[in-house]
Design a protein around this nucleic acid. Structure first.
Lengths: 247, 247
DNA sequence: CCTCCTTTGTTGCAATTGCAACAGACTTAT
DNA sequence: ATAAGTCTGTTGCAATTGCAACAAAGGAGG
């Protein structure tokens, strides 16, 4: 349990709570630790969650699958991050499946004890509850941001929306993204090959540069360079035999 | 202020709080009332929200607009519903614009007073904060549900996903939906005419029946009845004079 | 260095979508 | 009742997408 302390103390749930107070608090909250092997199921979709999970080590993924087997990656959880907090708070069925992305250890807290004051830890509950609100609000924002990307009509717009959001988040026009192509396609809810094709088109048009997971947003070319448009537009075609459709 | 009492008392934020305690609580929370005319802006996108809003009368809409003017209806708020609670809780910019769908009166509460105990109303804060958590969790679920619809790849799947969710929510295969075609298309992030066309196709295939805002999900025909396709297809038409449009 | 395996990029094609334009149905106000 | 305005359903067409199949580019291990 002590070996996971560094992960737990940085959890948003314990922000503002002194290190020395965390262990007593964990005991008070009915904390239970469990290990999971890679790809093992942590929580099945549809489960009634009465506990909140905190990643002590490893990494989890939250996946939504529809009746036809299309899976949609909703989130990755790193050490210190909490999950199932919405289902626990609304006393409703978990709308996603949670799986171990790698070997992981999870700390489960009893939700009722988190929001119900007890005599020995009352002092912490104010901070704890305020942190809980912050976590829910943050998750809310993440969902809203994903919606912002995904409501775009075309693959191109979705990709640009995601990339520019990543760029702002990192505070640089050049950055690595944490998802591979398939995961990014799932996240944006588009076809992987269509995404690859669109990224490649954006590159050939000089809008972005990238290699694998490293992307750079190029500044818009000045209007005076507009004449160069047709050159860009045909550069890809010129690499191919005349008959080939440029798509 | 008294005339809005019935709306406020049914707000999720005051659930479990005795009627007689609400007015003192409102005063304690720094409640301020404001009126808005139809289509007037209540909160602009990008605003730093320090207050939580409760609809006292009328109706609001939350809209997300992208740089190219495509607007996406995120939610409608009826009396008693609260909004801007996420931005207020995370101290971040409001990611949507909020407008009066009709003439409305809004009650604004100071977020800090909501989560900070004060001497005179401490007793209420436990319930208030727990309600606040419930509201955030519920909003979270709503966003997750919208994502579930919108991540479907085709207009047909999106429409069926929405309709079956509505059906479960109402507990009946026959129900009214609260959105008109344009709003539904915005919500599902598809083209209105494509949605109309798809709905009409679903109707001609005997999957659903509808007129305007009233929908009925038809049970799947048994496989053995496959030969009866054309019969089902025309059954509705047969109830009307031959020339009349089946609609 | 070579092989196996995973990830990413390309391409053709059928199917779907968005868009625009229009017609019919319904509502509301006069 | 009429007229004006709004909402819904239809259709043609150009553009985009998903899909499948394959090629190319790393990476890991021998």
């Amino acid at each position: 349990m002590e070996k996971y302390f560094s992960a737990l103390r940085q959890s948003a749930l314990f922000s503002g709570i002194a290190d020395g107070d965390i262990f007593p608090l964990l005991r008070c909250l009915g904390a239970a630790f469990r290990s999971y092997g890679k790809d093992e199921t942590v929580l099945s979709s549809g489960t009634l969650a009465r506990t909140v999970g905190i990643v002590a080590s490893g990494m989890l993924r939250a996946v939504k699958e529809d009746a036809w087997g299309n899976s949609n990656l909703l989130a990755l959880f790193s050490p210190g991050e909490i999950f199932a907090e919405t289902a626990a708070a609304s006393d409703s069925a978990l709308p996603v499946g949670v799986f171990a992305e790698e070997n992981s250890v999870i700390c489960f807290l009893d939700f009722r004890r988190v929001v119900t004051s007890c005599s020995s830890a009352c002092v912490f509950h104010t901070a704890l509850v305020r942190n809980y609100i912050g976590v829910l609000a943050a998750r809310n924002l993440a969902l809203t941001e994903k919606l912002e990307h995904i409501t775009k009509r075309t693959t191109r717009e979705k990709a640009l929306s995601y990339l520019s959001a990543q760029s702002s988040a990192r505070g640089s026009r050049s950055f690595d993204i944490p998802l591979d192509r398939q995961q990014l396609a799932d996240y944006l809810s588009v076809d992987r090959s269509a995404l690859s094709a669109e990224l490649s088109r954006l590159k050939s048009e000089g809008v972005i540069a990238y290699s694998r997971n490293h992307f750079t947003l190029l500044p818009p070319r000045s209007l005076s360079a507009e004449g160069g448009f047709s050159q860009d537009r045909h550069s890809a075609r010129c690499l191919r035999p005349p008959g080939a459709a440029p798509r």
